[in-house]
Design a protein around this nucleic acid. Structure first.
Lengths: 210, 210
DNA sequence: GTCTATAGGTTGATAGAC
DNA sequence: GTCTATCAACCTATAGAC
């Protein structure tokens, strides 16, 4: 759409695209400035360092997602049910641009190297707490640790969808089409909600038939 | 245990550890040879290129996992139930060394760049087909595409566990302890089995209360 | 703000002695 | 098989002209 953009935005757009496509380490500043059609020195002028650029690229996309999550959770009232909570958590992510934002967020979520410091503590700790409380209210019989495990599992479903979003059609011979967002979100929510509601295994008993 | 190892194995061990810790791109051959305490040129002598080394590192760990998966699936008889199928698929992965193999497999599964060619087509396509058939037999009411989606979700749960295995205790304030493998496997199987069994959403209807 | 030029370091890979 | 030495290419970052 917009023919002309300022240098800073062009760099952010190009970085986002390439980080998602090739990963943070495999993308050089030269790759980015070539894609953005700006001068190499512009990156350091506007963002000081590659590491700060990564921070900026991530923050630009995760913060609006988190705001939308809170909006949707609030909109569901003071006692949102399980599917409303899960939808508020997942939909804002899966509704993003499949060509750049989704792969970027996938890289961000699945790279353990600096995930704790760069992503979780800065952007996810607070909102996770809020959703965890809402979930616990709907699932009072679930021990907090068990609830946390299942949230970790659900985040895994979401993360893997984002990481492999670009290759999923090829992987499944076209059977899994990721472009219908609404259907995808409902699918994930259905799957995760059933997982949350599963009766926790009782370690002391011999296991029953599956 | 083994004090003395041949150069080739030392390189594989060091590469596995560092690839898991820092990722494929961020790990240089010099990092690897320093860790393995071997000469830099030894890598190219034994493995030709970094890319071939990555292949070798992956193949060494995924192939035994796949053999074990098939063993467990076969051991469950000709009509394994859902939990038996899921356990056969997940347990051989989650039972691996948490300090090196699990993080490596996590990197491998969550890097979309060459996942299709380097990992899926070479190591996962065939076994996926076999498990998909077993699952379909137990879940005949589920459309093949829907089944595939849920398998993708389940692989996401597994992958995210592997990717963040090193940081999960720190992330959850120690609440989620990954060292009890048996309990973890049961937790994942319980969650995924419930997800597989969830009634598929019917797009035409207005949604019921969650 | 944008550019050129370049510093200073790392990378994967190889040639050739032993 | 293992080593030293090295190449050519690449990297991030910055200094300084405009």
């Amino acid at each position: 759409m917009s023919e002309k953009q300022d240098t800073k935005s062009r760099i952010l757009d190009a970085a986002e695209k390439l980080f998602g496509l090739k990963g943070f380490d495999a993308t050089s500043l030269r790759d980015i400035t070539a894609e953005a059609q700006v001068n190499l020195a512009a990156v350091n002028y506007h963002f000081q360092s590659k590491d700060s650029l990564i921070d900026a690229v991530i923050a630009r996309r995760i913060e609006p997602v988190n705001r939308r999550r809170m909006e949707m959770l609030d909109a569901a009232g003071s006692h949102p049910n399980l599917k409303q909570i899960l939808t508020a958590f997942l939909a804002p992510v899966l509704d993003q641009d499949l060509g750049s934002v989704v792969p970027l967020l996938g890289r961000m979520m699945s790279d353990p190297t600096q995930f704790v410091e760069k992503v979780f503590r800065k952007h996810l700790a607070q909102i996770s707490q809020r959703f965890q409380e809402a979930l616990q209210e709907q699932l009072p019989e679930l021990a907090p640790a068990e609830l946390l495990w299942r949230t970790h599992f659900t985040v895994g479903v979401m993360t893997h969808l984002m990481s492999l979003s670009q290759v999923l059609p090829a992987l499944t011979g076209g059977l899994c089409d990721i472009s219908d967002r609404q259907a995808l979100i409902e699918r994930v929510v259905t799957f995760a909600a059933a997982g949350y509601r599963a009766r926790a295994a009782e370690p002391a008993l011999t296991e029953g038939k599956g």
